[in-house]
Design a binder for these strands. Structure first.
Lengths: 167, 167
DNA sequence: CAGTATCCTGTCCGATACTG
DNA sequence: CAGTATCGGACAGGATACTG
């Protein structure tokens, strides 16, 4: 990890982890989605050391997930807002939320996704956009894409359970 | 993180991160979904030090994501297979995959989700199971659930953009 | 208020050697 | 093959003090 390339960097999952692999990064994004934008809002919310917060915030800006925006000039003040790339991260967050609720909340969920109008609790499911089918196995699986290099292609031809899941 | 509680541990996202917060954990799960089960398969695939692999594998077993299963007795041999809890993690992985493909694959995707039968490339979208509506803002938002404690409840009443997203 | 500058610690991780 | 045992390095993260 860190800068050492990390397995096969062609893998989109590994690439994603390059940007949000640290704990705080994801929690900061969670709070950004919640509407927090200012340094000290994050700090209070997360109870994180200021230097660490600054470091993670900078990393997120460099990765293009957050954008620094000056909201005051007299005393120069910056706020951090989600970019499109950052906003696109929400499904990951909500998938994580759904998984956590299902498996690590014996007392019931403390945070849920709801319909803003009706207030009805939503149950997040991953589906294929065009067909609407739930993305479950064995109906769906991962496969090499058009830009797959040799290394990735091999994984799908030489390994024991190519396409099948471990049972 | 580590054992220091980590912000608000009632948050399902934080709880999830407790189990899969480390880089290798997620990559190991990715490979487990791919069908790998044996120690040295993971090691070769990930190019990870054996002691680290053992550590992460044990953590995953302790968290109930993987299950150790003896597949040979003469020489005792264990393999690691996904539990139900582990299999439920797939949406997170695929959301991560979709996000990586969209934002960090200028040359096009190297790995995609496909329909096993037709081979058609699927586009993962998070929707509400009962209504089928895409889980996007501002139609949907997070809200305190039935088991929300005081601290969580406060976040949704006292902060600037309760329910709204940063624009 | 929004950070920066230091110093320190924990531990994640890498490399290597060894074993049933 | 499936790990365990050690040693060391890098860095995330914590605590604290300071500044425009």
């Amino acid at each position: 990890m860190q800068r050492k390339s990390f397995g096969n960097m062609q893998c989109p999952i590994a690439r994603s982890l390059e940007r949000v692999g640290e704990w705080w990064s994801i929690l900061i994004l969670r709070d950004a989605f919640y509407g927090l934008t200012r340094f000290d809002q994050f700090q209070k919310s997360l109870d994180i050391a200021p230097n660490i917060l600054a470091r993670r915030l900078n990393a997120l800006v460099e990765s293009g997930l957050l954008e620094r925006r000056q909201y005051s000039e007299k005393p120069p003040r910056d706020e951090y807002v989600l970019t499109q790339r950052g906003r696109d991260f929400r499904p990951v967050l909500w998938a994580l939320l759904a998984w956590g609720n299902k498996h690590f909340a014996p007392e019931g969920p403390s945070v849920v996704v709801v319909n803003s109008d009706s207030g009805a609790v939503a149950e997040p499911v991953l589906v294929d956009r065009s067909t609407g089918q739930p993305l479950a196995e064995p109906q769906f699986r991962v496969a090499p894409g058009p830009a797959a290099g040799e290394r990735i292609r091999q994984r799908f031809t030489t390994t024991p359970a190519a396409g099948e899941n471990a049972r």
